[in-house]
Amino acid sequence: MQGAPDTIEVPDPSDPEAAFASVVALRRLADRLELAAVNVAVRQGWSWTDVAAALGVSRQAAHKKFARRVERPVTRHRRD
């Protein structure tokens, strides 16, 4: 890609097909970025309470969504 534009082009809403496709791609990207970031945060010692606050969800929601999926730190004795 040459000459990257400085401004963000939002798809013309009169072309729903293109707009929907971008929305879906953004959701997939957001999911991927979120999981990667939570994985790093937990490795760095973030508590579920902090992760939840940063993501704007409840602690329970964050734990339910990610606890099974992220790599657990090796030393972790207390429940947080």
Partner: peptide
């Protein structure tokens, strides 16, 4: 490739 293109169209290049 389609996903990359759909993101690029709105200026997102992760």
């Amino acid at each position: 490739a389609q996903e990359v293109e759909d993101l690029e169209r709105i200026g997102v290049r992760p």
